[in-house]
């Protein structure tokens, strides 16, 4: 499976390493014409305002919306989760508007409040080490969205069909199970399950 990592800004190398460790092939995506032969796309952590601006500037909004419409899977972590959301709390303009969720940015506070913890994730057997950095939260989900994990009753991992998103950074640990989960989504999409 060939997985692209949107390489406009953020933790691109870490996702590439994790995808490769999970058995996939990773490529850094800087232009829209690189999307056509990918089996899946990851939108990494970084600054969502920066990534959002650059996505608009280089035509990624429509290109990624079309990519998703083909049934190809997308995985957003932290800023990537914000990029996927249909609604951003506080009135800020949403970016890709693909996932039927509302997100609150910097929902835990500032860097001082950033933390790591162990998290149960539906579909993954043992707990996952989750690193939350100035992390967002999912405050509302639509009916077609499945909640995969919560922290203090707040939603931090969710899936809607071919879209996967989490508030934290699985790419910052040596646990590659969420990337393996995403690769499985890509395999299933490729054979049309």
């Amino acid at each position: 499976m060939k997985i692209g990592i949107l390489a406009l800004q953020g933790a691109v190398a870490e996702h590439m390493r994790s995808i490769e460790a999970a058995g996939g092939q990773a490529v850094a995506v800087k232009t829209v014409d690189q999307l056509f032969d990918l089996d899946g796309l990851i939108i990494p952590g970084g600054e969502s305002t920066t990534i959002g601006k650059l996505m608009r500037k280089y035509g990624f909004i429509e290109a990624i919306q079309q990519f998703a419409a083909q049934g190809k899977p997308l995985f957003g972590t932290c800023a990537g989760l914000i990029a996927l959301a249909e609604r951003i709390a506080g009135g800020e303009e949403a970016h890709l508007k693909l996932m039927d969720i509302t997100v609150a940015r910097n929902a835990f506070g500032r860097q001082r409040e950033s933390f790591e913890t162990d998290l149960e994730v539906d579909g993954i057997e043992e707990r996952v080490r989750a690193v939350f950095i100035r992390a967002p939260l999912i405050t509302e989900v639509g009916l077609s969205v499945k909640v995969l994990s919560t922290y203090n009753r707040e939603i931090v991992t969710a899936r809607q069909g071919n879209l996967l998103a989490c508030s934290y950074h699985p790419e910052l640990t040596d646990d590659f199970r969420l990337h393996a989960y995403f690769l499985q989504m890509a395999r299933e999409a490729a054979v049309g399950i």
Binding site: G10, A11, G46, S114
Partner: peptide
């Protein structure tokens, strides 16, 4: 739950990569 760990501190800088 742990704050201020090496991973949380260094990770914050990782998120700045490719940025200004």
């Amino acid at each position: 739950m742990e704050t201020g760990t090496l991973r949380v501190k260094r990770g914050m800088a990782e998120m700045q990569k490719g940025g200004v």
